[in-house]
Design a protein around this nucleic acid. Structure first.
Length: 458
RNA sequence: GGCGUCGUACCCAAGUGGUCUAAGGGAUCGGUUUGCAAAACCGCUAUUCGCCGGUUCGAAUCCGGCCGACGCCUCCA
């Protein structure tokens, strides 16, 4: 497989640490609100990555963190006067529900920051002992970025070029160098009852340290792949590298993969700008989960997508071409076999080349047209049909864009049968009346050589 | 100011030195098929890849400049 590695800014041949088992760490949500669909774009990209790895014969050990303690969760829970734990639980549940709705493969671990405080403290103590971190006058612990030669490698930022004027330091936080980031934040009054004891007094961990602690504890000091959205490259991932490598003295991550943004009206979708949609919003507006997945995968993960509800129709039509074909193939294919059409290999190759889903789509649809032609000509064999179904199923394992079958109501089947009888008698008026009736209940009847087919109206 | 990504038809979007007189999806129009439909298929729709130069036998693809969009530079997927 080939991946574009953010670290080298080049496509690289993927060489896993272990031949069979891939370790994967993905940055998860901060649970202070429902995620927006931009967040989900990243999680869907990670799902595509994972499914492609699995389909290519790897086993994947996957951890995704849940940030249940940080400035935002404390602030929001304080505002709502709800205990932090209670507060985050609500959003953790929403997140898990939506992952399921989105048909995202679950991770093996969903570590929560609040459960790894002692591990974080251990790392911080180690960093202090090696002079990579220091305790400031206000009792916070900071990582000294000057102590790490490689700082800035991931994002190609030079320390002396960073603009230093934008951030206004509050009295509570005082680092020696403004870019030094907090590993541990000393207790402040606004933290309420949220604090842990540490060798430096009571307080709470900084944001970046949690990922290092959880990733290394669950997956080891060196992991194969770490993913996230591009906005996490700096400072978050840069800081993770600094902490982890100073702590473990080994390379933290071999391959960094970052997905690009989902834009709204050409601008980044974000909570702070307020220009975002949640999953519930788009479903309410008539976009199905499958259509959303199709839309996301119709662009490469490293390019931006300008989100628009106008795209629903595009996805709907493309998906129905696939389901239509599958419905046509089922009566032709008799036996189940294990083999695939030739196009499947090229399809898989496209995915293995840095997850080129648009190219994979194109190969798939090119093949789809050929099969449709064979069906029209009546030249398709039972074996070819069976292979074709396998390919469609493989396609759908990767992308998960075919809606789950909806049960056809008895009543509708009954009408369709009556219509078939009327058609035999060439009673077109009656046949059309029955078709209208079926349409009224939200179904579509189609005629074919093998008899009628029923499908749900989109 | 520093760092970076991108600009391909009406829309979305691959392709990153020759197989590109540019894939695939959607949309439009015309046709085949059908009792009529639907589905499916065929045809039309970029001699051209933001603009201008350069390198090369050859460029959408490499280099330089310009224009435009977006992002990161300590809240952010």
């Amino acid at each position: 497989m080939i991946f574009y590695n953010s670290l080298s800014r080049e496509k690289e041949l993927f060489k896993p640490i272990d031949k069979k088992l891939i370790t994967l760490y993905t940055c998860g949500p901060t649970v202070y609100d429902s995620p927006h669909i931009g967040n989900y774009r990243t999680f869907l990209f990670e799902d595509l990555l994972k499914r492609t790895l699995i389909a290519s014969g790897f086993k994947v050990k996957h951890a995704m963190n849940i940030t249940d303690i940080d400035d935002k969760t404390i602030k929001a829970s304080t505002n709502e006067k709800i205990d932090l734990k209670e507060f985050t639980k609500k959003y953790i549940n929403i997140f898990f529900d939506e992952l399921k709705i989105l048909r995202i493969l679950p991770a093996d671990y969903y570590p929560r920051a609040t459960k790894y405080i002692s591990e974080m403290i251990a790392i911080i103590e180690n960093l202090i002992s090696k002079n990579h971190a220091y305790i400031s006058s206000s009792g916070d612990v900071y990582f000294s970025i000057e102590s790490f030669q490689k700082y800035g490698t991931l994002t190609n930022l030079k320390l002396d070029k960073l603009i230093q004027s934008k951030r206004v330091l509050s009295d509570e936080y005082s680092s020696d160098i403004i870019q030094d980031f907090a590993l541990w934040k000393a207790y402040k009054h606004s933290d309420g009852n949220v604090y842990w004891q540490s060798p430096w007094g009571k307080g709470r961990p900084g944001w970046h340290i949690e990922c290092s602690a959880m990733a290394m504890n669950l997956l080891g000091n060196s992991i194969d792949i770490h993913c996230g959205g591009v906005d996490n490259k700096f400072p978050h991932h840069e800081n993770e590298i600094a902490q982890s490598e100073c702590f473990s003295q080994s390379k933290f991550v071999n391959y960094w993969l970052h997905s690009n943004f989902l834009l709204v009206d050409g601008e980044k979708m974000s909570k702070s700008k307020g220009n975002f949609y949640t999953l519930k919003d788009i479903i309410k507006k008539g976009m199905s989960v499958e259509e959303f997945r199709y839309m996301i995968f119709s662009a490469h993960y490293r390019s931006k997508i300008n989100f628009s509800l106008k795209r629903i129709n595009n996805a709907k039509k493309a998906i129905s071409r696939i389901t239509n074909l599958k419905h046509k193939l089922i009566p032709i294919a008799k036996d189940k076999i294990q083999t695939f059409p030739n196009a499947k290999k090229r399809f898989h190759e496209a995915l293995k080349d840095d997850l080129d889903s648009p190219k994979a789509f194109s190969i798939f649809f090119e093949w789809l047209k050929d099969i449709n032609l064979m069906i029209d000509n009546g030249t398709i064999s039972e074996t070819e049909a069976a292979k074709s179904i396998n390919f469609i199923n493989f396609f759908d394992y990767i992308f998960q864009v075919i809606p789950k079958n909806k049960e056809i109501p008895e009543k509708i089947i009954h009408y369709a049968k009556l219509r078939e009888t009327a058609r035999m008698k060439k009673d077109w008026a009656e046949a059309d009346k029955l078709r209208n009736k079926i349409d009224y209940y939200g179904w579509i009847v189609e005629d074919s050589k093998e008899g009628f087919r029923l499908k749900k109206k989109l």
